[in-house]
Design a protein around this nucleic acid. Sequence first.
DNA 1: CTTCCCCTGAAC
DNA 2: GTTCAGGGGAAG
Length: 284
Amino acid sequence: MPELPEVETVKRIIEPQIVGQKILSVTINHPQVIAYPGEHLFVELLTGQTVQSMSRRGKFLTIHFASGDRVVIHLRMTGQLLIAPMDYPIEKHTHFIAELSAGSELRYIDVRRFGRFWYLRADETDAFTGQDKLGLEPLDENLTAAYLQGNLGKRKKTIKEMLHDQSIVAGIGNIYSDEILFASGVYPKEKCLDLDCDDWSRIAKAIKEIIAWGIDTNEMTAEEYLAGKGKEYRNTPHLRVYGRSGQLCAVCQSEIEKITIGGRSSCYCPSCQMKKSIYSDLIK
DNA sequence: CTTCCCCTGAAC
DNA sequence: GTTCAGGGGAAG
């Protein structure tokens, strides 16, 4: 479900509600979501820990404990984290509940059960989650046109696919890659090696602007977040191309098209995001 | 490179 | 009934 802006939203809502809390008890309803180190050890290690902070890296969340231990969480497609009063109804597909000292609960809900939890002890290096392979954060000042062109400029793959490569830029998924390419005016199926300096500049700028916009627009209170069950995000109605095939482009009124790239759907405006080959024919 | 897999549910 | 879904890893 969530990409970087949504995961950041989850972090901003959840962190203030768990900092300083002690975990009194842990219930796991579906062990599949525990990737490491196994259900029973996970429960044993987590019980009694006191939360110090929460952080986000790409689409990963980490809960840091006073002991130095931490829990890394990836929500994948449909994972949701909620802080709920103990008497709040248990949603279907609730796989994990941690009872907190304030009398509330941290709950994990995941319809498709693709999400994963890892418990890492203080002295354990993270060799399990994949976080160590992440590239730059979109808002990192080192993420520039030169960085993108240097890392991707000779690749044959399409720009749409490469924007999903978490080892280059961390946190972009299928929604935001569509939105970023629309904002850049780049045809999603364009091969990286066909893009020029100006294209990379617009893409670098759009990555920052669209991701920052996504985070800002998602801003909400903890009450609103709970009411939306941690799965309703504010910016969804304002996306400009994702999920809008057949509708008219807000900029030029052309009909937004949907194509398949690397096995995933991609929505784009054929007029605002013209293929370079067509464009070069037009300016002859 | 493409295809499949992990899962459930909504839309068609 | 079939297809698709905001992720990611493994297998062919």
